[in-house]
Design a protein around this nucleic acid. Sequence first.
DNA 1: CTGAAAGCGCTTACAG
DNA 2: CTGAAAGCGCTTACAG
Lengths: 344, 344
Amino acid sequence: MSNIKEIAQLSGVSKSTVSRVISGRGYTSQEAREKVLKVIQELQYKPNAVARAMVSQRTNNIGVLIYRSQYPVASHPFYGKILDAILAASAQMNYSVFVTTDQEMSLRSADFMLEKRVDGLILISRLEQNVIDHIGKFGVPYIMVNGSTDVPGVIHIVNRDQDGGREAARHLTGLGHKRIFMLAGPQSHRSHHFRLEGFRAYLHEQRFDCPESSIAYAGASTFAEGYRRMEESWEFFQAEGYTAVFGTNDMLALGAMKFLMERSVNVPGQVAVMGFDDIDMASLLTPSLTTVRVDTAKMGQLACLMLDKLIRQEAVKDTSIELGPELIIRSSTWSDRSRSDRSL
Amino acid sequence: MSNIKEIAQLSGVSKSTVSRVISGRGYTSQEAREKVLKVIQELQYKPNAVARAMVSQRTNNIGVLIYRSQYPVASHPFYGKILDAILAASAQMNYSVFVTTDQEMSLRSADFMLEKRVDGLILISRLEQNVIDHIGKFGVPYIMVNGSTDVPGVIHIVNRDQDGGREAARHLTGLGHKRIFMLAGPQSHRSHHFRLEGFRAYLHEQRFDCPESSIAYAGASTFAEGYRRMEESWEFFQAEGYTAVFGTNDMLALGAMKFLMERSVNVPGQVAVMGFDDIDMASLLTPSLTTVRVDTAKMGQLACLMLDKLIRQEAVKDTSIELGPELIIRSSTWSDRSRSDRSL
DNA sequence: CTGAAAGCGCTTACAG
DNA sequence: CTGAAAGCGCTTACAG
């Protein structure tokens, strides 16, 4: 592959001039410019980004570090959406993006990024404190998206999960449900914790019954766990006369719904089901799932925007950004039948 | 951040010696080694990968270029899985991976990669011929995964889609279905084309009726298209007495199934539905979807393995690799009821 | 076993 | 307006 030296020789100018032509910085005569450009064309010359990064101390790369104890990562129904948004936004801003996942070997993948000299880092999901400390030490700008830990001074982009939980509770109680069962994801994770908290807070304020026994804690926020917890609780659920289920994410809710459907329980006629996230599947299933949408597109976009500012050392005022959730009503909670059943 | 020069000064040796200690190449005295290592520890020194890449002419980066006319890319139910497998395999092989998507601006994203100097490229899905030509010109090793075009001399990793199509046809006819409706994705795409071809070939060989009218061609391989085509064809479908639908991918099949369920058609009792790919959703829905599984995990893994060989200039014998499809029978085609209905 | 020097492919002051 | 030189942070022969 050709380099600047070759271009210089062939066009009869110095390397400096070639560089100036390419960058458009500094003065160059019309004549020199034309000669150089022509040779560049002919040789299909592409400046070496590695060499450029070396001198400019800027790689134009950003790294995305997604914490997941196991795959899927990219194809994860929720995190994958954030990643997609990051990919889209960063392409527009002329950043290339490294994608890494962080499993057991937490520090190793972070090092990977740091050695690669990314200009900045986007950390998604929960990150162990030691990884964060580690990254912090290197002075690389970074942003946390939907993180579980609130590290002071770090820019966080999160969903207003408490509000979302409240909206969910309002929706279900508004439909006439008085006894609502909750499927709660890992409480160590910020989102699941706040979603549940918001949901309960609303019930409490409105004087609805909301004992601990109405909550099943899932060990993971997966479809399988949702199914299993629902199955385990089913006898109790029936005995206690619950008429609705709220899952702190869609996967849990969908797992529960699968169980109900296998038992030929009518959703929403006999039991209403509601989730949180609005993953793609939510709208595709039959019945489609009522949920609270998290604006993953904006999360990714903002993350890139803010990170770019940090990288360019611009002033960033907000140390944390909260996005508003949006209630999405679909057929798993609402239908003509469910309406008449509980005489809304 | 510290560099090799600083380490050298602090440990009282030359840069060369520091470099030798770090790389483990060449001779170093025990004493020098200890001093250097200690300083490295203290300063938390990380060698600059950009500088290394500059001299070694190896970046240890690979690029993944996914062609998609629109998002999702990473979170795509099928391509996302391949990406995940690539992420997992490349991490093990100490490659970092750039992920780019290629939309309108085809050449631009490819250039991005080439300027970044990746050691190699993995191209997923269909790629325009001019992009391929472009990449080929730069002498960067690359591999195509599930590509739609058969560029001679390029290593392709694909699924044996014709065989998969045949298996699907065998399964459905084996269940007693005689009139099968087909939902075909874009025939410009290799997979959809071969899947349909295999399916029809089997029907033909077994003397089943298989006119062109039994095929609805979808403009895209999406859920929405599956739904829409099924809806459009529904009257004809009933009039002609079809008892099964085969979609050339799961999304099409699921869209069709959604339509059927909304019409309260019993699946598989009245109509059996079958897809291709085995995306996550396929097993989660009710009824779960019978499909032909594509081994995306292996696709991604092989892609990395082969690419690494190309990068290291090792001999690669196979110019193309075909993976075997696997029939996955679930409840959308098979149940006790469906069995008795057609007296299997 | 160790250090000085050259070089990877660029950019950026600095003379001219 | 242009070119020679220095330097980004490493590695790799080459003397010693």
